[in-house]
Amino acid sequence: MMRYAMVINLGKCVGCNACTAACKIDNTTGFGVKYGRVVEVETGKFPDVEKLYVPLLCMHCEDPECLKVCPTKATFKTEDGVVLIDRDKCMGCRYCVVACPFMARFFYEDSKRPQELPRMDMEDQRLGTVEKCDLCIDRVKEGQNPVCVETCPYQARIFGDADDPESEVHKLIQSGRAKTLKEEDGFGASVYYIWW
């Protein structure tokens, strides 16, 4: 069984936001909509302080809260662990946006549409629905990496099949050094973080 996962090395991320920009361009997201973003975090106490950059995206949880609350079954999970939204089924109630513990979902409304651009493909289907990172599933199915992984100039992101013992992702997860966000809440994220 295949299970897609991503490991992000926080020791390598410099917060250049190349992934954020590439994701926005590739997915033609609206104003204020970032499927992937990089958050600045300060740790330590003066004078021993440190600045960290933590990339955030949809965690493609094992037990997704967004899926549980969706009243129309528009949110679903594929066999390979990717959480997706069927735009044709979404009624735009935004319950999933509220329920997502990682702030990874966005409601696409007219005010977020880039007005100066020509109407994009799927525009009418997108309006009034919720959207989020789909792990660039179309690219992945063609054997490519998600665009954020591809763009990272420091190779801070590693993508692959977590169930394949030969994959780097699997080895990193099995090493015990990788951690997920809000691990104690049991969401079971498929995006892991590591520091080296």
């Binding site: 009243p71 129309t72 079954k73 528009a74 044709d88 089924k89 979404c90 009624m91 735009g92 109630c93 935004r94 409601f107 696409y108 409304e109 309006l127 009034g128 629905t129 919720v130």
Partner: peptide, 13 residues
């Protein structure tokens, strides 16, 4: 609702 035309789906589910 963003897409009220899909409201019926919630009643069905």
């Amino acid at each position: 609702l963003g897409k009220p035309s899909n409201f019926w789906r919630s009643v069905a589910n």
